[in-house]
Design a protein around this nucleic acid. Structure first.
Length: 320
DNA sequence: AAGAGCTCCAACCGCTATTGG
DNA sequence: GCCAATAGCGGTTGGAGCTCT
């Protein structure tokens, strides 16, 4: 392993990559393919460590790297997978084709942790996880659905960024979105990352009409995508995603009263926090929150709930 | 206009796991 | 089995660019 003194000794470059360095790396890999990175760095005439070359290639130069904002679907998937696996960024990245572990990690640190900070709770706290599970994620589902309903009834997008690839299908049933009750959504929309391994065994993280199909390549990482690191198969239905969907979106039985269906299902899923005398977020004082807090204004991609959600939960707490 | 503060992300660091001789 | 080299991962940092005052 190269130490700092070695880097100095070999006159190796550090810091931001230049266009010339990028071109040298791209051209070398185009002609010779990826190989042993230290050898590659020397052969390509780059005064960089192999490690630096690898990182630059994987996180930036690879043709299948996807740039741009994290989409709502990707946000939902990140939240879902992080709740399942924690900070295992590379594993999460396997399910977001074109996104790097670094990018997902940055998204988590900058956006998600920002919300935790605004809520004055730890990102790993139960309260924040509950907020994600029962507010942020359902809200993302709503917004994905709303976006889909304003465009076409059925939208199928296939993104091939080399491999793995994702096919996203959004189907809506003309939802009746009621702004007086954010949980009144009359569709069956859910997120389904469908994981297909090389044996064509499909493992749905959750059943839905929003379908993301993951097709791993033959690389070492992709082949193991259908099971987690503990060797257990990913369950056919994601309990967590199913939970937040059922609880927040409702069972489509026409009962949109959050005080009934919502509560009952929350209890059914063992969500005792919501039924506790202290309420769901006992440490949060919604009344005292700044009305101009950015994340409860407008409807930007960073706002995971709105004023109505706030009032709803305040009401829930008051009724306890 | 300017500078202070903030956000975001590319790149680095240190560690562990894997590979190959 | 041992050891060095390499690959991969997650945490951290530095700086560019943006926003606010």
């Amino acid at each position: 392993m190269l130490q700092n003194e070695d880097i100095d000794e070999l006159d190796l470059r550090r810091g931001p990559w230049t266009v010339d360095e990028d071109l040298a790396l791209i051209n070398y890999i185009a002609n010779h393919g990826e190989g042993r990175w230290n050898t590659l760095a020397r052969s390509a005439g780059l005064k960089r460590t192999g490690k630096s070359c690898r990182l630059r290639w994987l996180n930036y130069l690879r043709p299948d790297v996807r740039r741009g904002n994290i989409t709502l679907e990707e946000q939902l998937l990140i939240l879902e997978l992080h709740s399942r696996w924690g900070n295992r960024w590379s594993k999460i990245a396997q399910y977001l084709p074109g996104r790097t572990d670094n990018e997902i990690k940055n998204y988590w640190r900058t956006r998600v942790q920002k919300h935790a900070k605004q809520l004055k709770c730890d990102v790993n706290s139960k309260q924040f996880k509950d907020a994600m599970r029962y507010l942020w994620m359902p809200r993302l589902v709503e917004r994905i659905q709303a976006a889909a309903s304003t465009s076409t009834a059925t939208t199928t997008t296939t993104n091939n960024y080399g491999s793995p690839s994702v096919t996203t299908t959004v189907t809506t049933n003309n939802p009746t979105y009621n702004h007086n009750n954010n949980f009144e959504v009359h569709t069956n929309m859910m997120l389904t990352p469908t994981i297909m391994n090389n044996n064509n065994n499909n493992n749905n993280l959750c059943g839905s009409q929003v379908t993301q199909s993951y097709t791993p390549d033959n690389s070492s990482n992709g082949a193991a995508a259908s099971s987690d690191s503990f060797g257990t198969q990913v369950s056919p239905i994601s309990e967590l995603t199913q939970d937040y969907y059922n609880v927040a979106v409702g069972s489509n039985n026409g009962n949109n009263n959050p005080n009934s269906d919502y509560y009952q299902q929350a209890q059914q899923f063992g969500f005792d926090c919501i039924t506790s005398p202290s309420g769901l977020f006992p440490q949060m004082d919604f009344n005292s929150m700044e009305p101009n807090t950015p994340w409860i204004q407008g409807d930007t991609s960073d706002n995971f709930w709105n004023v109505e959600n706030m009032l709803l939960f305040q009401q829930l707490n008051d009724n306890m």
